[in-house]
Nucleic acid binder design. Sequence first.
DNA 1: CACTGCATGTAAGGCGTTACATGATTGA
DNA 2: TCAATCATGTAACGCCTTACATGCAGTG
Lengths: 181, 181
Amino acid sequence: MAQKNVLKYVVLGLLSHQDLTGYDIKKLFEGELGDFWYSNHSQIYPELKKMVESGLISAYDDTVGQKMTKTYYTIQPQGKAELADWLKEPLNALPPTRDEFSMKLYLLNDVNDPLIKKLFAEEIARHEEKLQYLQSRWKLLFTAKAEQKKHYGHAMILRQAIRREEWRLQWLREEQAKLEE
Amino acid sequence: MAQKNVLKYVVLGLLSHQDLTGYDIKKLFEGELGDFWYSNHSQIYPELKKMVESGLISAYDDTVGQKMTKTYYTIQPQGKAELADWLKEPLNALPPTRDEFSMKLYLLNDVNDPLIKKLFAEEIARHEEKLQYLQSRWKLLFTAKAEQKKHYGHAMILRQAIRREEWRLQWLREEQAKLEE
DNA sequence: CACTGCATGTAAGGCGTTACATGATTGA
DNA sequence: TCAATCATGTAACGCCTTACATGCAGTG
């Protein structure tokens, strides 16, 4: 029942490039990758343990400083196989979008309600901030064209996120302009 | 703990225009509204009961045919107040996006992997289908300009959904073209 | 008379968020 | 030394999906 455990495959995918700790994965989700997938550490750590138990990955410890141990995870053949299967499978049905901003607009429903203008201003500010962050990341990582080819997937999702924000802003500003008439 | 119960406010918003049955609400979610909010009937019916208990809405029955009873719900003053409060509140933080398509691309990471082309073809087909449906709805509902003004919220979210699909398709086709080089 | 849609409900269980918890390391 | 970050865990709980269930109404 319920949803598919996509986090498992995401983790397998990340580990297929290099060994990582749970904390590393958490940090990845806090960067641009988080624009497309995110999980809290409280979900990541138990998931990693489950995956070790089922033989998809293995674990080894490393010591930092005097006492602290980090646990790195390595993908196992069985894990590689499951990852390859998942990548081959057709995409799952799109999950429903739940967009609070749009719902509020829909429910207000009266062009003259002053709350509508406030909503647009708020939403535009949010997306402007996001866009700036993404653009700074692009500059930092992919100014060199060679990097774009080397990290195809990464460059592509970052481009996509930037375009998404640009388009959203464009739409928001158009609708906002209509309100002024 | 956990998320906010937005469904409650969505239901209040829908009931603020007219009395509806649980089934009516379910049907609304299956139309364009479902592009921005969706719940299964197994969530809607219990939620309505809870809302009656807490005094936000009231219920009355109507008989259809010989035996079948439908239950309509009416918004109460307390419900109107809570709805107004919610509409005034600033937007909640954006929930994380979880996009399986983009994750697969990110993880494949090799421009030459034949799976990438397959993925694009699949995703493009999905969005083309969606766009066609949305465009047919727009024609049906809002060819008359007067309707656009009368149902501001509805027209707006439909326009937004159409634009979203157009842009997504544009991006997908651009990336697809790049793969051919 | 059969089939599609109307209409309403409950149950099981996974996914995800928020909160609670602890301790080590590093750099200012 | 003090704060921020590294690093890892558990617990509670709500949201949401999937599945199971039942029966009436209207149309061909």
